[in-house]
Design a protein around this nucleic acid. Structure first.
Lengths: 157, 157
DNA sequence: TATTGTTATACTCTATAACTATA
DNA sequence: TATAGTTATAGAGTATAACAATA
């Protein structure tokens, strides 16, 4: 027997009641993007967090792990496994800073820069396909709205 | 010493390089909403998954746990703890269905309906504040864009 | 005292395999 | 055989406390 017959109303069970909530729609869209992005990065041996780390290190050569953690909005302990993995794979270098021997200066290696270029191209292609149903105006509106929501949340007490 | 001086470029370390990526902006916005929503529901003893379950059960009285799992897009095993908790707190009832003794019919109790009404009001107030920086058009665009992205992802092979 | 990197730990969310009882 | 609910388990992701080295 197909589902739905046991409900009092005998109508199809849906998530319609949750659709008016922004949070629910955002979670669903995020789940789709997260899954697709994971599948895109997996063949390159990367996860979202390792890809993001490579992007930020590439844009800020010589930064410390604490600075990287702040830029990525993750706690410092959770970055240790990330920098360990990237170092072990020879994608980044960690060099002591003479002026402050507590910190490491992070930089992309040649291999890291090459992999980042590959991954960036793959992610852009992936996002282009997710954008397929949206016009240029839609994209601009979407990014603007997301930024405003993020600012509202982080800006409150 | 303030940060940034150890980088090669001596500029402030930011996530600017990640901003062009839709996925990154969506994750940040989702993190904000998730945290705020969690804080909103916590005083009521609810989490996102238990709140969502109450909403769907309230809209589809008598549905089965499998139907609830499908509507919420979570795997069946992960719903067991949810229905157990809601049952233990007297917020939902689980009654055997005579026509199919494998399934339970889920319904809100009076207490469950009361708590759901409270929670719904709180969540709506919460979302209104997150919407504060957006116009009505912005909101419509945002929900439409999120739905399109979700459809693009779920509709692919 | 404060900060960097680290270890240990824990909690949430989510996914899979396999069991039971029913069908 | 197939399905509903369940158990056990494992993997991410994320958070806090506390430590050693350094400032």
């Amino acid at each position: 027997m197909s589902g739905g017959e046991e409900t009092d109303t005998a109508k199809k069970v849906t998530d319609a009641a949750l659709r008016p909530f922004l949070g629910f729609n955002l979670r669903r869209a995020w789940n789709v993007i997260h899954a697709d992005l994971g599948a895109t990065l997996d063949p390159l041996g990367l996860r979202m967090i390792t890809f993001s780390a490579l992007v930020v290190i590439g844009d800020n050569p010589g930064l410390s792990q604490a600075q990287l953690a702040a830029a990525l909005s993750v706690e410092r302990p959770n970055l240790v496994a990330v920098t360990d993995e990237l170092t072990r794979r020879g994608l980044i270098s960690r060099e002591r800073v003479p002026s402050d021997r507590r910190t490491y200066a992070l930089r992309l290696t040649t291999a890291g820069a090459r992999l980042l270029a590959q991954a960036t191209e793959a992610v852009h292609a992936h996002e282009t396909s997710l954008y397929a149903g949206l016009t240029g105006d839609d994209r601009a509106h979407l990014l603007g709205a997301l930024a405003k929501i993020e600012a509202t949340g982080t800006g409150r007490s």
